[in-house]
Design a binder for these strands. Structure first.
Lengths: 196, 196
DNA sequence: TCCTCATGTTACCGAGCGGTAACATTTAAG
DNA sequence: CTTAAATGTTACCGCTCGGTAACATGAGGA
């Protein structure tokens, strides 16, 4: 059916190329023609797989979100019944990824900044994902038995989201290590009894 | 010299209108024509005051940065010789501004996402400002006598930057209050002696 | 009054954008 | 080999964009 000159099917190649260019030059800074070229195909084929550029963007975002949520499941499977362990491992994984964010930050954060229209198809996807993620953290904090789980969850969220931005604006330095340290401290202090 | 039909001079009107539209619709989502119109003038006059759209963007960013740094000076004057007080007051001011960030986030963060070109005139301005701000926090943490001031400073930075993003993606909730609480806790725990 | 200078007005340019039509080519399955 | 479907190719459309030229208008200072 397909040309078999490429191992990866067209649709996927387009998504990969689009993601790459979106992240490098910004969503609005990349034209569909450039995407098609980078995917070793052409504009027409692109529009046979995606009904518009906005839909392509949305599909790209869906991919990122799906990947992230899969990682959450991995985390849950690896530390079953150990919410503290999940949070700690989570911080370590993020810290490891920080270097890649140094240049252009988080794709999702950038997409949110570049798509001001609340009715954009990609917005719903991101909004819902962030909410799920937040609720997940709240649930973890609750089942870990933290006092004031609402605050602890907010703290976790702020730390994680903030880490990207700090890395992007003032460079790596030791932010990764400090992030891990702080999360470990939080878990430690909350595991025992109230310190404050 | 000028037409006196407007109280505010043209150049300033343009900057205000541009900032408003940039923040609402994104930098790349706004054309110079729309800016001129919103400023009750026209494209030609805009280009007599700013040599290009990129320079207008840079000038807008300079304004934001200048305003922020002035606020830092206010803070220093208000809590002279009291670095903890500065940090605490800082968190309170940010918390108060969070609601305004709920819809579109921080203008500077968005600008960073929308201007991938490292050579863009506005990038230097932001980069240098973020670095100054970071060093300022480090200095405050040191003069407050915090143990491990490098880590504490990173923690402050992550919290503040992260607060914007959390508010934007999952809504206000109590993030403002939680931010203030955490900063107060940090100051309290560090003021006395090591708790962990 | 006249002169100057900032501003307004209109029209235009070249380039790039997202998106489509029509047709040619390749590929794999029967 | 034939056929149907996916892909490639080219040319095009309408629109918007950043930016400029030329000229008109207006207001204040001398």
């Amino acid at each position: 059916m397909n040309k078999r000159r490429f191992v990866i099917p067209v649709r996927q190649r387009i998504l990969i190329a689009a993601g790459d260019l979106f992240h490098k030059h910004g969503i609005r800074g990349v034209g569909v023609e450039a995407i098609a070229e980078a995917a070793h195909t052409n504009k027409m084929t692109l529009y046979r797989h995606f009904e518009s550029k906005d839909e392509l963007i949305a599909e790209w975002v869906r991919g990122i979100v799906a990947h992230k949520e899969e990682e959450w499941k991995d985390l849950a499977a690896k530390h079953r019944g150990d919410p503290e362990g999940q949070l700690q491992d989570w911080s370590r994984r993020w810290a490891a990824k920080l270097r890649a964010m140094e240049e252009r930050g988080s794709p999702l954060a950038n997409a949110l900044a570049e798509l001001p229209d609340p009715k954009h198809p990609a917005r719903r996807v991101m909004q819902e994902h962030k909410l799920r993620e937040y609720k997940r953290v709240v649930r973890l904090c609750k089942s870990a038995g933290f006092r004031d789980p609402a605050m602890t969850a907010d703290l976790f969220s702020m730390l994680l989201e903030g880490a990207h931005r700090c890395v992007q604006s003032v460079g790596m330095r030791q932010i990764g290590e400090h992030l891990v340290q702080v999360v470990d401290l939080m878990v430690e202090n909350n595991r025992q009894r109230p310190t404050s």
